[in-house]
Design a protein around this nucleic acid. Sequence first.
DNA 1: TGACAAAGTGAGTCTCGACTCATAATTTAC
DNA 2: GTAAATTATGAGTCGAGACTCACTTTGTCA
Lengths: 181, 181
Amino acid sequence: MSPRADAVRNRAKILEVAARVFAERGAAASTEQVAAEAGVAIGTVFRHFPTKADLLAAIMKDTLAALATRAAAPQATLAGVFTDLVASAADRRSVIDLLPGLEVAEALAQFRAVVADLLTRAQAAGEVRASIGVDEVMALLVALCQGALRGGWSPTLQRDTLAIVLDGLSYPGRSMAEAEG
Amino acid sequence: MSPRADAVRNRAKILEVAARVFAERGAAASTEQVAAEAGVAIGTVFRHFPTKADLLAAIMKDTLAALATRAAAPQATLAGVFTDLVASAADRRSVIDLLPGLEVAEALAQFRAVVADLLTRAQAAGEVRASIGVDEVMALLVALCQGALRGGWSPTLQRDTLAIVLDGLSYPGRSMAEAEG
DNA sequence: TGACAAAGTGAGTCTCGACTCATAATTTAC
DNA sequence: GTAAATTATGAGTCGAGACTCACTTTGTCA
């Protein structure tokens, strides 16, 4: 027997609303808020997602999958992914707190793989220097998103900080970092 | 009459312990934890800091002041400040959550002024391109700290991401950011 | 040393949020 | 249309943590 129609509808509605609520009010927003805004009883939320952590993980998984899909498009570029991500973080539409090690590993790995591909292509095109690895790129991506999210970066600030980081990715060498102890 | 000696001692002890506890376990650590580790009763903590937010604000204020002092040293450089901050964030020794608008404004402004000075000098020395402003530098600083804090960056990753960003600060132009819509 | 005010104590209150479960309402299968 | 199973409901439980306060202890000053 397939799942009941109302169950499917409610699950989708809860996920959609929860993503918005947690993005707006932070992961500390209560499950009751989510239930109220989704128009269901709190018990319904817990039937679909036995734990608040499960709900957050489901959202992260969806978000990462959507990002991976967008980044896997033929015309996608590394710079484009950075721009998109930072904009959506500043907008509080995605990228909740990274809850370490919670069922999201697989989705994260997939996204990472797509970024790795974009990086390779950018390097082949001479847009990014060869010495840079995926780890650094992912780290910078997360850092910029956290900054944009918590700092509420304006579009101008997003553009300017991104320009700096992207330039750093392409710059030939002479890192200032060597210049100090 | 000057304040009692034990009161002064306890206040200092609480601040010291609280900074460590919140850095290690996050701002969600309970006030009881702090009291226990400081060896005082919970009422004592609340006597000195009527609210948990007051305690966090006091810590942030101290931290920012210490940072400003270190960054104001004659031999300090912009690259050095970036390196120090990211290392201490990764180490969870400072930089708690930025609680928006809470008595920290003044301390933040002071730190920002010191960074502005370092930036001006770096630009005069030709180490950073002239088009960059303090806002971008502060934004990148916060972003990198958040990333290092939540991502638990290894020393290697700290060095590599920092090198990229610092290179971006000095790079002459040709931002990749223009290359997409 | 005595007296008093400042500071310390910690059990208790209060609020809030995660999670449960007995019961009611729906949906589906036939 | 009806039975049976699935799902929805929401008041209630439970625990945690911020904060209070009546009372005790301690430091200070004369």
